[in-house]
Design a binder for these strands. Structure first.
Lengths: 164, 164
DNA sequence: ACCAAATATTTGACTCAGTCCAGAGTTCAT
DNA sequence: ATGAACTCTGGACTGAGTCAAATATTTGGT
């Protein structure tokens, strides 16, 4: 985690933003709960400063993203997540089973660690990489489930139903 | 584009699916409108077969994704998109301005073209890569807009307001 | 310290994408 | 042709996020 200013207000002011309890608490929440969704952050902020509107959190988050103090990740099939590791070009690994998300450091050098040959004349500013797979505990759960199914239906019947 | 069976029904049957006009039309729509959203596909299918429920299209799409006949891409900030290029491990380039999406062939060999060192014990099955940037026409539009702003306000005032 | 202007926050309604459900309609193997 | 299994429809519903107007707070100059 990047060195956290004890004085979050300082950080806000440096970026031309007014300092409010809501914003400070939101920044701290992002910092202490990496990969949290907006809703989780709202809960966390409420636990700290008592109450805040959903709107204020969304607004703060989008301002922070705009100022590049926070990165927003939006994996398929789940709400957006936020983290405060910015500028170090790392990637993400997500479990298809439980949706847990892990950081993966990029081993290929500086950003963007991938270069597209055919850039269609674009000015590319980011290469976003997401690895999809199954985490160890979901793998174990899958294995257990399959074993259970085998036990329940010992003889493989010839029914060619579509598997769901 | 992959060779399209004239007989889409064949393709469906091969994968253990029943053949219906709705499904055939949906497959054709995906094939002829790469990167379309579900809503666009619904419109297209309706134009071809007259009417279909949103549900049927969503259902068909998810079945096709499950059978690996169609790939689903869900970029941040927009609805899911579908394409029929599967199995050839290409990536995507999206414009931050107009959200247009382009295919980029992977130049690094076979899938997964990226390997994560630290895999946290995962069984990784896919590396999804999205390049973000600005397309040539949006770059031009930006330049024009900036020029206009400069003209309107010749002297750079010292106001350090937060830009929105 | 105080005031006015600028900026934030709240509240509540609203949009958009997608899902769930139960009943009616089709498809396919026999 | 028939029936069981599968698919489609229509409508209600959910969750994530956005919009806009009114209210409250912060800030900079005096």
């Amino acid at each position: 985690m990047i060195v956290m200013h004890e004085d979050v207000g300082q950080l806000l002011r440096e970026h031309g933003l007014q300092v409010t309890a809501q914003r400070s608490a939101t920044i701290r929440a992002v910092s202490s709960h990496p990969h949290a969704t907006a809703d989780e952050l709202i809960d966390d902020v409420r636990a700290v400063i008592g109450s805040i509107s959903r709107q204020a959190v969304y607004d703060t988050l989008s301002v922070l993203v705009e100022k590049n103090l926070v990165r927003r990740i939006q994996p398929a099939g789940s709400a957006a997540r936020y983290e405060d590791r910015v500028g170090d070009n790392h990637h993400h690994l997500i479990c298809r089973g439980c949706s847990k998300m892990f950081d993966i450091d990029c081993t290929l050098g500086a950003a963007p660690c991938l270069v597209a040959d055919e850039d269609h004349g674009f000015e590319i500013d980011e290469a976003e990489v997401i690895f999809w797979g199954r985490c160890p505990s979901c793998l174990k759960a899958d294995a257990a489930e399959n074993a259970a199914k085998e036990a329940a239906r010992p003889g493989p019947s010839g029914t060619s139903r579509r598997g769901r």
